[in-house]
Each structure stands twice: as structure tokens, then as C-alpha cells.
Design a protein around this nucleic acid. Sequence first.
DNA 1: TATCTGATCTTTACGATGTAAAGATAGAGA
DNA 2: TCTCTATCTTTACATCGTAAAGATCAGATA
Lengths: 242, 242
Amino acid sequence: MAKTGTRTKTETARGARRTSSAGGRSRPAPRAPSAKAETPYHHGALREALLEAAERVLERDGLGGLTLRAVAREAGVSHAAPTHHFGDLTGLVSELAAIGFRQFNAAMASACNAATTPLERMLARPKAYVGYAQAHPGMYGLMFRTERLDYSRPSLHEAAEASFAGLANAIGAMRQEQISGNALTLDQGAAIARAWSMVHGFTTLLLDGRLKDILERLPRGTTAEELLEAILKSTVVGKLPG
Amino acid sequence: MAKTGTRTKTETARGARRTSSAGGRSRPAPRAPSAKAETPYHHGALREALLEAAERVLERDGLGGLTLRAVAREAGVSHAAPTHHFGDLTGLVSELAAIGFRQFNAAMASACNAATTPLERMLARPKAYVGYAQAHPGMYGLMFRTERLDYSRPSLHEAAEASFAGLANAIGAMRQEQISGNALTLDQGAAIARAWSMVHGFTTLLLDGRLKDILERLPRGTTAEELLEAILKSTVVGKLPG
DNA sequence: TATCTGATCTTTACGATGTAAAGATAGAGA
DNA sequence: TCTCTATCTTTACATCGTAAAGATCAGATA
């Protein structure tokens, strides 16, 4: 998609760069954490810097703004630099999505650990799911909306797999069953797919603003979180263990 | 996204014009159906032809292939012709999405009408929902995945609104309540959001291939439809009226 | 120490896209 | 017949992804 923005800056913002001039330039270990200052010659840690830049661009300008060239600009390198580290846009996007999945998994795990009562244990995970998506809508869109993901990349495959495993285990715990990785009964599969579908669907619709109609018709001031909780409770009624 | 395809054809394929698609394209008033290879001067019904071309491109090449220029090529007109009818890509995409919503609503309505037993009545709508998405994955992606939709366009707004109204009514019927358009109780809102979230989430995950893991672990040969049915029945257990 | 080598980054180039603006064309009315 | 206007085509430009060739630096080697 061609950007129609007003920016007309010359592509290679080499002005900020700094030619070696400062003869000393001893940069043994990659970059002291002294932020910008000296732009390094070979940078030293471009890969990580590009991923961080990409996340900033994503959350600032949305999925449509996440381009190879925009990321390169954000990181202050030439537009072709990312290619060397990620191959192509799909590569960068996939690595960023892997980071997203890891953040996502960590958020759910920590929420589960913080839960104490059975009811809390039941609600913690889905609430963390939606909460992460609300806090990082760009990342969530990257993980679940983009078509440009390459799941054959080990990092992405593993992170996404871990996400699924966490879900399956949570459902298994709720049903007081051991869910083995191998086979599932139709009942088990339905329980997993149902939980995932509902939370993922809710999140997608919420981020797309499609639940606004419903929220506005609810008693004054009802939040999305309250709606989610009502859904979860009605779904799970009478199924609390113990 | 720059296409990296092999095509090198000159943009304005003014030679191959006419006779291409056997797909009807009746063109009412202008041009007697003499079927001579004459390319029409002003075409006469470009707007409709472009929308039909767009749907073909979408289902053939996916969301990423749906570009203004590709649609213009498919319709055999210059690349800038669509602009006059739709303003920009968002305009064309939004009008096409409106068509999709109308098809979608019609599919669900007819499925509901065909249902006879209470159980069928309960399953007909969600099954038609998923069925439409499976039959028209490109269209469904256009309606629910694209960010380039302009809901301020009356045609799109109305079609999407009708879709929501149908859902709300169905839930109301299931709960044997009259759901007025104005206000909703938390219970009602939760029921509507829950149903929509679940079916939409299931559809999205299914189209994205994310349910493959589950399906493969289920008893040999279990289809997505059977999984959906299991989900629906487990959700609705003991709530059938009558 | 001086040079070579490979990895990293920059330049340059090309075809693709969306969109704006100006030119051409034909159907409808004067 | 002539002009007007909506429709369609050409031309132009900024941006995008990506390939390929040039520049630069870190570390190994001689």
C-alpha cells in the first residue's frame, strides 16, 4: 500500500549518522547503553534494534505502517539493512510475532499464578488474554490478523505452540483431566476449541470496535471487562470444581 | 506490498479487451450484443463490472492480490478507471464488503428458514455462518480482517447492521425474549456477545488453519463441522426451549 | 604488523502499488 | 451542429519490497 503521507524526507537519513571522524571510536562490546549519541559503523546489535524499532512502529502507526523501510528509518539505518537480518518483510514480521507470543504467554502465566480462588483461576487466563490484546493491539493484530507469518520459522512456531499448550493445559485442569499431547476426545477438543474461539473472537470483535454497539446498549458504564466476565461466568456456570 | 510476480505485461492491455470473461456481463443499453470484439467506448456498467471483477480477483488471489490495478486489469480497463467510481481502494473494498455482508445475511436467513426442529433452529445459523466463510474465505477476510473498511458508507453500514440485527434477534428468540434495539441487560448482551464471539472466533481460527492441531488429534476423520456442532451442543446443553 | 576475508551495512535499480491531475471520448441536450 | 459533462485513459510521482553490487569494518591469518 502506498503511503500517502506528507513526509518527503530523503530516504537515507545519513545525516545523523556520524562518520568515523572521531578516530577513537573504540566500540568493543556492542554499544554502551548510552542511548543514541554515536551511531556506530556496523551498529553491533542491529537485529535487536530493528525488532525494537519494529515494535515501536507497529504500536505507533499500526499494521499498515509497519514496513521494512519504516523500521529501517526508525532504527536509523539504510532501508535495505533489515534484509540481511530477516530476509524479507515476512521474516521480520514473523520474528516480531514470535516476541509477541512470548510476551503474551508470559502475561497469561503470571496472571494464572496470581490467582487464588477457583473462580479467579478460571477467569484469570481469558482476562489476561484480552488484557494483553488491549494493551498491545498492534502486536495482537500482528499475531492473529496478518497473513504474512511464516510458521516454519522455529522461533515463531515454538512460541505459538507454547501458547496453544498453555491453553490446552488450562482446559485440562478445569476439566480435572490430564490432556495428553497426542490424542483428544471430541469432548476435550470441543472444550479447547470453544474456549479459544470465544476469547479470540471476543478480542477480535472488541479491537475492531464491533462490540461498541452492544456495550452502548448495556447499563450505563458497563465496561468490556465486565461484559467479558459476564460471558465467562454464564459459560462456566455450575462447572466450578470443588 | 509490491508484487514480486512474474507478470511483465504492459499495464494498459487495451488489446485483449472484450470477450474475456464468459461471466455474463450483459451490458444492457449500450452495445448491441453483436459480440464483436469491439471494446466499448464508455463501457456502460463499469461499476458493477468492477465489483464482479474484484470478487473474482479476491477469491482467486486472496486479500493480498486485491489491488485497484489488478481489479482494473481483470475488468479490462485502465488502472485509474476504478477511482472515478469508488474514490480509492478503501471505497472499492468497502462496497465489495457490503456485497459480502448481504450474501452472508442471505445465507443465514435461508438456512434458518430451512430448519424445522428446535435443535436445527439452534444450529442452523452458526453453521451457515461458518459455511459461508468456508465457501468464500476471501470475502470473509475482507469483511472481518481488513482494516481498510469505511463503515461511514451507507451501503456497508446498513449491511453490517443487518447482520448484527439478525444475530440479536436469533439470540432473543432462543431466550424467548423480545430484544429491543434500544437497551440490553447485561445478561442479554453477554448472550449476544458470547454467541458472536464464539462463532466468529471459531471461523477465524479455522480459516487461519489454527484449529488444525486440534482436528488432527481428534478421532480419525472428525471434520470441522462436527467439531463446531460439538461445541454448539455443549454450549447450549439444557437450554433448548420446549 | 600488514593483509586478507567474510559479515554487515549502503547504494543503486527495478517493478509494483495508490492516487492525483490532465487529456481524450462519447452520449445527451442546445 | 455544437457544446457540455460524465466517463475513461495517460501521465506522473511518492512509496513499497527486494535484488544486486559497492563500501566498510572486525577478526583471523600470514
